[in-house]
Design a protein around this nucleic acid. Structure first.
Lengths: 352, 352
DNA sequence: GTGAAAGCGCTAACAA
DNA sequence: TTGTTAGCGCTTTCAC
């Protein structure tokens, strides 16, 4: 403060008063001009903009939000930013938010409740106007702090009691049905499923959708062919190995996520099996890398852009149009099958 | 505002006055307590903390930074958050910053000058206390806005005139020398280099280090064996194909980054070449995925944690200890060789 | 259509 | 050691 005061006026970063002085108007007029108030006359408005330009003036967002009560910051909490699924999601969320005049506060929980607590605290301290909690986990309890502070939340696949919360429902069903149909059309009848950890809502939903898809094409669900993995590459390897030990083996494997599928690809390669000649593999997510595996992975795409868009819209609604937000508290994001080279007709011996 | 005023006092989010009232002290004492001022007596301090707890009070950061002139926000601009190199960098930077009481503002420039301009504008508007510009690009001109607003900058591999800027020097040399020595020890003498785009400072530095490493082991630098690629997987494929057309082919390829190396892995596989039996490949970066390629990639690790730490320290120094910052404006980050399975002895025919 | 002035929640200078 | 008070830069009544 003191230091600031001793600086020569000329090299101080310009404030609204400086602009007002230069434009020979009141600070109220400058404020109105910046905020696009329609009452300002063209004559003054022009002078103000000129002054702003000349001084290279940027409004002080802290002061602005302090008085307006709106921070124009949205938080996004992901499970782990180094998981390739999330950066694209963050990127989209950032783009949409910035285009709409919001800033974003990113943080990863790393599936650690203590870290999540810190994340939530940071969000509250910075007075975010809403938080997208895209951890796909089960840490709902920590979120009470958010609801306590009246901060809107949007969650994936979980409904919170709080009236300021919204939910994004993921329609895995469409993509999974498409995947099963695709395999059936190729001639597969022996289809295994490497599930995600049952602690995740999303993993359970996906597994149920697999079961119903199998039923819809009248295919039997072989108990040993559904294995709970952990959504990691190593989990995929382990799942595949377990399948290999079975007397009767599937000709196709659908995986709960891409990392699992990549693990299967790798394990199959190690065993000397050719994908897709000997085995078809389908993932879920369509992470960037899916395109670059060997062979490129056929997978069920969960569009991060769509997910980000839904999350933003949910929060924007809560922040800007609370009445509408009360009515629409659920948002649907769809999935679709992306055909690449990891699926093909089953081997002749199995085709009989 | 109006709406806020009509709310019952009881459900208003508590402010410093509420805490003061409950603790029966002045707001100054509350402020002092929160900021750990040593002058507050234990008796009052205890009462204040109790009130804070009871009211679930969180200080308003906007108000705080408005008056203190310190936002405690650090910006980090990366080239592209979906590039697997960056999330880990951001993660580390976030951890360090949060541990030191700073918030971070992440944004990606996507190598687009227009987007970079927006990024910089966002940084200025939110009054960040420093920006880590880790784009590894050549967009220095846009940064003038930052220096104009007296905001400290830290850049990788580029020195800015501005006294508030610092530079992180990357010691690729150590890692590259180690890589070449490793190859030489295995028996390689024909080593190619797939360079990065010459528009990047880092790519040029890396290439020069390759040349000097080759000289230091008295190996000839074959002109056709240095090819400028673009740091993408496809670039690696193209570079490899170009090498294959040559009458005399290298037994080992060092790449300017991991994505290029992964491209080479893929192209070699397509051609039926076995890595490492027929060809050794080394990358640079050690992105997470390098561990999961087939075969796992031997690579030169550029520690994102070290980089993040250096970037944070540079900015913290500028923000908190300007005198020291004047003295230390350069930070060194080292590299090291990570041995995996993509390197081996050269094929017998070439070994002669 | 424009300006004066109050005050957002907090820190820091100054008084006591 | 504690309290009083003047702003930080801005938005937003309320007069004119």
């Amino acid at each position: 403060m003191a230091r600031k005061a001793t600086r020569k006026a000329v090299d101080k970063t310009p404030d609204i008063r400086a602009v007002a002085a230069l434009a020979k108007v009141s600070i109220a007029t400058v404020s109105r001009t910046i905020n696009g108030s329609p009452v300002v006359s063209d004559r003054l408005s022009k002078r103000v903009w000129q002054a702003i330009e000349q001084l290279n003036y940027f409004p002080n967002t802290q002061a602005r939000s302090l008085v307006s009560g709106r921070s124009r910051i949205l938080g996004i909490i992901v499970e782990n930013i180094t998981n390739p699924f999330f950066p694209e999601l963050i990127q989209s969320f950032e783009e949409i938010a910035v285009a709409n005049g919001y800033e974003i506060l990113v943080s990863s929980s790393n599936s650690d409740p203590a870290v999540l607590t810190t994340c939530v605290r940071r969000m509250i301290e910075r007075k975010v106007e809403g938080v997208a909690v895209l951890t796909f986990g089960e840490e709902e309890t920590v979120l009470e702090h958010l609801t306590y502070h009246d901060i809107p939340i949007v969650l994936a696949e979980f409904r919170l009691e709080d009236p300021k919360s919204s939910t994004i429902l993921l329609d895995y069903s469409t993509g999974i049905h498409a995947a099963i149909h695709h395999l059936v059309e190729l001639g597969h009848r022996k289809i295994a499923y490497l599930a995600g950890p049952h602690a995740l809502h999303s993993a359970i939903t996906r597994e149920n959708d697999f079961r119903s898809a199998m039923q819809s094409v009248n295919l039997p669900i072989h108990k040993d062919w559904i294995i709970e993995c952990n959504h990691t590459l190593k989990g995929g390897v382990a799942g595949f190995e377990q399948l290999q030990k079975l007397p009767e083996r599937p000709t196709a494997i659908l995986c709960s996520n891409d990392m699992t599928a990549i693990g299967v690809l790798r394990a199959a390669y190690m065993r000397g099996l050719n994908v897709p000649k000997d085995l078809s593999v389908i993932g879920l997510d369509d992470i960037d890398f899916a395109e670059f595996t060997l062979p490129p992975l056929t997978t069920i795409r969960l569009s991060r852009t769509d997910l980000a868009r839904a999350a933003f819209e949910a929060l924007r609604l809560q922040a800007e149009e609370p009445d509408k937000a009360k009515i629409q508290r659920e948002f649907l994001v769809s999935t679709s099958l992306v055909l690449r080279d990891s699926t093909g007709v089953p081997p002749a011996t199995a085709r009989s």
